[in-house]
């Protein structure tokens, strides 16, 4: 921003110099623009500070309320006394299983759709526009609607009942739009030089896709995955009627299993005296999200290094 206003100033001073009274006016102009720069910078800092403070506040709140609950047993034991005692081990396992189902279904489907949209359709083609329109619509549907859909379709029509599988599949429907849209951006970010270069070498579109474009688009896809995981982990409404409320250790994907977010919600809303565990669980969720974010970034760095060397 600074640089831009500087060049603007130079252009202006050049123009004014021609009129013979340049110096004075340019001086005033420069001063006011510098002041505006400072104001803008100040505003940016304020916004950033407010954001950080909000996050800090939430974190501090969670820490003060929930840190006391954290222990080895908290991570390994099943909840007792409606969650006020015991741990969240089984809930953690259920959550990870739900997430795994969700990603195993949504990721291949989402990436394939994104690849189709970006590589095999023209940007303004009617098919592409239609798919994108549907995805945008889907992205704005409230999650409770996905929950009710999942309860009817997966739990009842497909007979999966309250199960981790139902929950994961419902979540997959929900994160699909996010995944497709950011993967598509990832694909579009890949330089056309690579596509043209590959075509000029007589490489088939599918080979180019698999060995050149896909690896190059992986960072964008990873962003989509992380966003999708974030949304999936934060979800309650879509899961309460699908993966359910049971806190027993799941023996299979057809068992019902409570997710971390539902556990937090239930303890905060339904269980008197549930706040410490709710905060402790929220703390675990925040750390889990941070770890996934960080892990994805690290994995991308390593991938880029390894892939470019292979």
């Amino acid at each position: 921003m600074k640089r831009q206003s500087k060049t603007q100033n130079q252009a202006l001073s050049g123009w004014w110099a021609g009129t013979g009274q340049g110096n004075l006016v340019t001086g005033a102009r420069r001063q006011s623009s510098r002041w505006r720069d400072r104001l803008a910078a100040g505003l940016c800092w304020t916004v950033a500070a407010v954001l950080l403070a909000t996050f800090g506040w939430i974190l501090a709140d969670l820490l003060s309320e929930g840190l006391g609950r954290l222990s080895w047993d908290f991570f390994t034991k099943a909840p007792m006394d409606a969650g006020r005692a015991g741990g969240i081990g089984t809930v953690l396992v259920s959550t990870l299983l739900i997430l795994a189902v969700c990603l195993l279904v949504a990721a291949p489907l989402g990436i394939a759709t994104a690849a189709y949209l970006s590589e095999y359709t023209r940007r303004k083609s009617s098919v592409g526009r239609w798919i994108r329109g549907c995805l945008d619509l889907l992205a704005s549907v409230p999650s409770i609607v996905f929950g009710l859909f999942g309860a009817v379709f997966f739990c009842q029509m497909l007979g999966l009942g309250f199960s981790i599988l139902s929950g994961g599949l419902t979540l997959a429907c929900m994160v699909l739009p996010i995944l497709v849209r950011s993967s598509e951006t990832g694909f579009r970010m890949v330089s056309d030089d690579l596509r043209r270069g590959a075509a000029a070498l007589g490489m088939r579109q599918n080979t180019t896709m698999a060995f050149v474009i896909l690896p190059a688009a992986l960072p964008g896809i990873a962003v989509g995955l992380v966003l999708g995981i974030g949304r999936a982990l934060a979800e309650t409404a879509a899961l309460i009627f699908t993966s359910g409320y049971v806190t027993r250790m799941p023996a299979s994907l057809l068992d019902s299993g409570r997710s971390l977010s539902i556990h937090i919600y239930d303890l905060a809303m339904n269980v008197p005296g549930g706040e410490p565990t709710a905060s402790g669980t929220a703390l675990v969720l925040v750390v889990l999200l941070a770890a996934i974010n960080w892990g994805a970034a690290a994995a991308m760095d390593r991938w880029r290094g390894r892939w470019s060397r292979s």
């Binding site: 189902v101 195993l104 279904v105 291949p108 497909l158 009942g161 199960s163 599988l165 599949l169 023996a251 299979s252 994907l253 057809l254 068992d255």
Partner: peptide, 20 residues
Amino acid sequence: MWVVVFLFLFGACGGTTEEG
């Protein structure tokens, strides 16, 4: 397709008890 695979993998080891 994935659903089918999963049902195969995990359906076998659970959910065999009848409701109620």
